[in-house]
Design a binder for these strands. Structure first.
Lengths: 204, 204
DNA sequence: GTTTTTAATGAACAATGTTTAGTAAAAGAA
DNA sequence: TTCTTTTACTAAACATTGTTCATTAAAAAC
């Protein structure tokens, strides 16, 4: 006895190594540089070994997705501290966009990829990182609605509207559609749209 | 002579056959069912023959993209006919969303895919179908701004804001993020967000 | 020392996009 | 017609991808 504990620890360490390596490959070479075989080569194990720790490639992607939300939360910290609701919404928006543009591969994995969502059974359960963020936005919208006594506003609809704008903006930027339509500085353009959105919601 | 003309016609016909088949495969099996080898098998030629008519798979995707805009235009026809600018904006938004949800594979190809944009040299030139649509939206926004005498509004920013909202909504819906956040009827939810967006822009 | 459990892999399968050398047929020239 | 050149096409190969399974080597349990 006792050796079984060591075994489990070693097993967990290898799993962690696989995830760390996946993360590194994603950061270095993007989603196209992340393959099961490359991970295997990197950690100097055979590809089949990966499948002793993960059912799927999707399962790896799914765990990376969770890591992505940890990273995103770091971007959100200053925004969460903001007292004024409409200003908090603005800061959340800015942080979201900043994260999306700076961490394009993470963003894509977390918000655009089908694979880790469809094939992993606990998809709903594990996207609650995303849901928590959305709920916080909804609460903030509620605060803003009360503060400005906006009647006929549904906080959840407003939250979704805000999410759609920033999600749309980030995706348009990342897929090079923004530059075609308006070749000026994209960041300024994006800022203006976010300004306009919040202005027309809360500053009238 | 004369036979050379027939040759060229036959060549063009084969190219058209490849594109038609690609289109059919995309519609039937989605983007994952569309491979060079499947196209080849379908038209009963070898895969290498495809490369006599197209430089790349990307080039095929690119031509499909153009077809997609033709299809999208059909969705837009009723909206274009609308006289009132704010109502026209609303109808464009609805048509855009309808197209996105009903023709998910086309939408993905036209608005999300990197490949046909990055590797084909004439990317800018050929996305002018998309640009034309955006320009029309911008013009309509201008009309609305004048009609409601909205000061300090930039038509292009408003147009981009609108595009971002619908693009974001469609993408959230297509990648199953909407249902997680709010499991009620997605179409109604999307409609409410579009309503809210236009209402807060033009109806105050 | 023997048996059983575990960890790890090599090799195979079915896909993918793409290239190249080679062939067969058609077209053009004599 | 015969010879040559151009054209249309393909078989085979290459380098990838995710995934599975029979097998082996080693460690653990008895």
């Amino acid at each position: 006895m006792g050796s079984s504990e060591r075994k489990e620890r070693e097993k967990a360490e290898l799993k962690e190594l696989i995830l760390d390596t996946s993360k590194r490959l994603l950061l270095k070479f993007g989603k196209h540089g992340l393959s099961v075989r490359k991970i295997a080569k990197e950690i100097e194990y055979s590809p089949a070994t990966i499948y002793l720790h993960f059912k799927d490639k999707d399962e790896i992607l799914h765990e990376l997705m969770e890591m992505g939300f940890m990273l995103m939360n770091k971007y959100m910290v200053p925004a969460f501290a903001e007292k004024d609701p409409s200003k908090r919404i603005y800061e959340i928006g800015r942080a979201y966009i900043k994260f999306g543009l700076e961490q394009a591969d993470w963003y894509d994995l977390m918000f655009n990829s089908d694979e880790p969502m469809k094939h992993v059974e606990k998809c709903r359960e594990d996207w609650d990182e995303g849901m928590a963020l959305f709920n916080f936005l909804t609460i903030t919208c509620n605060e803003a609605i009360e503060k400005y006594s906006l009647k006929g506003y549904d906080a959840q609809i407003i939250a979704l509207q805000l999410w759609s704008v920033v999600h749309g903006l980030v995706n348009l930027a990342l897929t090079d559609r923004l530059g075609i339509v308006q070749p000026s500085d994209q960041k300024i353009l994006i800022d203006k749209v976010l300004d306009s959105t919040i202005h027309c919601l809360f500053k009238k």
